[in-house]
């Protein structure tokens, strides 16, 4: 039972994810996308980076690569899938999750620590937190602004599919705490199943104690509990 971290050309957070998962005692290996999904895959990470140089749109090319149909089938069968940053963009481009992550409102690449409010804790990815808990995780993206029609976004909210929102230290999802102009401060969402989640912030960069806050550990522990 191994978590497969899928490496595309231009992925660059695959090794970070592997080290972070190893730190938590979760068995994981990097899988080159052309080699297909290993049969013993117990979970899938779509890692951060700049797959295919963000050509056309961030995540657009990777989302059309052959391994994605295997990822889609695994996700439908209940295999936990976590998309981080470019992996979140890929997740939305594949239709695993609703919406699109596009150019930051600032039109700049932003690399900073942000606060996230845990919107629900009955998912594998958030079971380690309390509902409404505020966690600190870094972002590093130029295209992280969550876009979706108001009508569809409201449906997602009614279905309780929002996993994380950008917020201030007190948990208020204010405009000032929204780093990229995301609709309704959305930072992470669930797919059709609670076992499928994408988020722009990097939990793997907030896991190793040597590099700072470790609030991201709980998200990665989703692979243990899913």
């Amino acid at each position: 039972m191994t978590v497969s971290i899928i490496r595309f050309g231009g992925s660059n957070c695959d090794r970070d994810a592997e080290r972070a998962l190893a730190h938590l005692g979760i068995d994981a290996e990097i899988v080159w996308h052309e080699d297909g999904l290993p049969a013993d895959t117990s979970g899938i990470v779509l890692p951060g980076g700049f797959s295919y140089g963000d050509y056309l749109r961030a995540g657009a090319m990777a989302a059309r690569s052959p391994i994605v149909s295997a990822v889609r089938e695994a996700a439908a069968d209940g295999t936990p899938v976590l998309g981080v940053c470019n992996g979140a963009q890929i997740g939305c481009e594949t239709g695993l999750t609703d919406g699109a992550f596009t150019t930051n409102e600032s039109a700049r690449f932003q690399c900073e620590h942000v606060h996230l409010r845990v919107e629900r804790n009955d998912t594998p990815w958030t079971a380690a937190y309390d509902e409404g808990e505020v966690i600190e995780i870094p972002i590093a993206h130029g295209e992280g602004r969550y876009e979706l029609s108001e009508r569809r976004l409201t449906e997602l909210e009614v279905d309780d599919r929002i996993l994380f929102r950008y917020c201030d230290e007190d948990g208020e999802p204010s405009a000032a705490a929204n780093p990229n102009g995301s609709k309704h401060n959305v930072a992470g969402i669930l797919g059709d199943r609670k076992t499928v989640a994408v988020l722009m912030p990097h939990p793997e960069r907030a896991t190793l104690p040597a590099v700072g806050p470790t609030d991201g550990q709980g998200i990665l522990r989703g692979f243990e509990t899913a």
């Binding site: 056309l56 749109r57 657009a60 059309r64 939305c92 481009e93 609703d98 919406g99 699109a100 596009t102 876009e147 979706l148 029609s149």
Partner: peptide
């Protein structure tokens, strides 16, 4: 439909 545009945006 399948690649050049993203119907969400």
């Amino acid at each position: 439909e399948r690649l050049l545009a993203n119907p969400t945006i």
